[in-house]
Each structure stands twice: as C-alpha cells, then as structure tokens.
Amino acid sequence: MKKIILPFTFLLLFTNSLKADQWMTSFEDAQKIAVATNKFILVDFWASWCGPCKRMDSESWSSTDVKELMSNYIPLKIDIDVEKKLTSKFTVNSIPRVYIIDPNGEVVLQSKSYMPKIEVMKILKKYSYGTKILQNEYLDFMKLKSGDNSLKIAEKYFNYSVYVKDDVKRDFLSIANRYLKISNKLYRSEGDKNKNSQKINLYADVYRYLIQGNYNKTLKKLNKDFKENEIIETNKGLYNFLYFTAYSKLNDRENAKIWYDKLKENEGSKVFLLMSRKI
C-alpha cells in the first residue's frame, strides 16, 4: 500500500505543475495520478507518421477551449510504435483512437477516428465527472486485485450512475457490469466461484433495470428469481430497496409502504432512501 499512498503528496504537487495540455506518456504514472486527483484518464493513441493524428493535434488538442476541458482529465498520449503491448491490450488497430478510461484501465468511452474540435469538446464535457467517490475502492483494487475489491467498485459505479445524466448512465452501468464480471472471474481464481453470487445477480439482473427506469421488469425479475426467505442478511437492504423503489415509481403506494417499512429496518436505509428519490 505504501507504494501507492506514499507518493500522493508528490503526485498532487507534480500534477498541479502540469499544464492542461501537457500530455503524459507513462500509463502507470497516469493511473496513479488519476487516483490521486479523482479524474478519468484521457488517452490518445497516435503515431508520428499518422496524418489525422497530426491534424487532431493542430485543430483539436491545441484549441484553448479543448485545453480547458482537458483539465478535468489526466491526458495520456500513447505512441503505438513504442507501446506495442499497451496498444494490443486496448485492441487499437487504427488511429487516431481516443479513449476515456478509469484508473484501472477499464474503458468508459472509445472513439475510433479523427474528431474535430466540436466533437472532442462534446465528449470531454459529457464525461467530466470526478471519481472521488471511487478513490478508496480504486486504491484497494490496486493494492489487491480480489473479487471483493472488484465488487466494491462495481457497487459504486451502479450507485454513481443514479446521479449522472442519462446520456452517461448507460456507460457507467456498462463499466459496472464489467467489474461484476471481473469479480466473478477473480472469485473463481480464488477458489470460491459462488461467493457473493446473490448480490452480483441482484445488481446485474435487477438494479440495472431499476436505474434504467424499467420498473415492471425490476419487479418481474425479483418475483421470479429472488425469494424473500432466501435473501441473506447482508443483501436485505438492497433487496428491500429494489422492491420499494420499483413500487414507488409505479405509484403503487400500498406495496411501496410494505417495502418501505422493511427497508427502514435495514442498516444503511437512509442512503438507500436517498438514492430511491434520485431514481
């Protein structure tokens, strides 16, 4: 943990000395600074021989308006002729290729071709959300890539998606689902493939529908696949929240009251009720 936390003061000082358009070239350093400053990473895959890349440099990245928006990100340029392993990891087969990724390298957005200034600005405005809510979870995952730590990140992304605009919500739900898949993969490698399977299924199969506004599907899935007497204690708050919110949004006051009373008995009910009002 010391390798990650100890340099934070230095990283913050270093980042404050960077200009908004000063691109980094080290993926690992960009990850650390992204965690320290609560920002997503803006990645530009390029090459010295790429004409459209040079055009983006002169027409898009050099724009004062774009530079101002870039301050919300950690900018990272990757030369595909130098960083071949990283280029392969992100399956970059044409350039310019622009990604917005989280500090763990999970993709929030990718664009596969030249983008004019107006398109770059649109994307940078759209995803200029900070990641402070995820900082502790990112740090834990960097320290130990475990199923539990991946699941915590997934939970935070699901909850975060409740508060973002609709045009970003889908992308946050997508990245949340990827972390659920990572959790399953890590649990298998840890020798307990069924660990937290109920919670993972509640998020992947039910909470997703609720956030997307599919309240009838939420209830249908709950009624079909999750029996109340089989819900383990640690998942009861989430379970009751899903029922209460779905019924509330459908204006079924009688059933909403039943599940509200159950939810009030659970730890963390205030947080669940706050999210319920936001959905």
Rank of each mutant, 00 (worst) to 15 (best):
M142N: 11
K126V: 02
K185G: 00
Y163M: 10
V107K: 01
E265S: 04
D192R: 13
K39Y: 09
T64Y: 12
K264W: 04
I175M: 03
D21A: 13
S62Q: 09
Q22T: 12
S88A: 14
Y203I: 11
E68V: 10
L124N: 07
S113T: 12
P96G: 05
K132L: 13
I123Q: 10
L219H: 08
S62N: 09
K156T: 07
N201Q: 08
S111I: 04
Y203L: 14
N255W: 01
S146A: 03
I175Q: 00
F14N: 06
S94V: 05
M142F: 15
N194R: 10
P52S: 11
K125C: 00
K39H: 04
T234V: 15
A246N: 07
K54I: 02
K165M: 04
M275P: 00
Y138T: 02
D252Y: 08
V107Y: 01
T245E: 09
K181I: 12
V107A: 03
F27E: 03
D252G: 08
A154I: 06
K264R: 14
E228V: 11
G237E: 03
N149V: 09
S197A: 13
E230S: 03
V164N: 06
Y127N: 00
A176C: 07
E137L: 12
E155H: 09
Y138H: 00
E233S: 11
I232W: 14
S183R: 04
K193E: 11
Y260A: 10
K85I: 15
Q135N: 11
S71E: 12
S60N: 04
A47T: 08
F90D: 00
K67L: 09
K122M: 06
K193C: 05
V271H: 13
V108H: 00
L12D: 15
P116N: 05
Y73L: 05
L6D: 06
T245G: 01
K185H: 10
E83C: 02
F158E: 03
F241D: 06
N16M: 10
L11C: 04
Y215K: 07
N136R: 06
V43C: 08
K217A: 13
I200T: 05
N16Y: 11
S60F: 09
Q212E: 14
F90P: 00
Y243P: 01
W23E: 04
F10K: 10
N229K: 10
S62V: 08
F241P: 04
L124F: 03
L180A: 05
I118Q: 15
S17C: 10
D79I: 09
L86Y: 05
D44G: 03
P116Y: 04
D205I: 01
E233W: 10
I118L: 09
L180C: 15
I123P: 06
Y129L: 07
I100K: 00
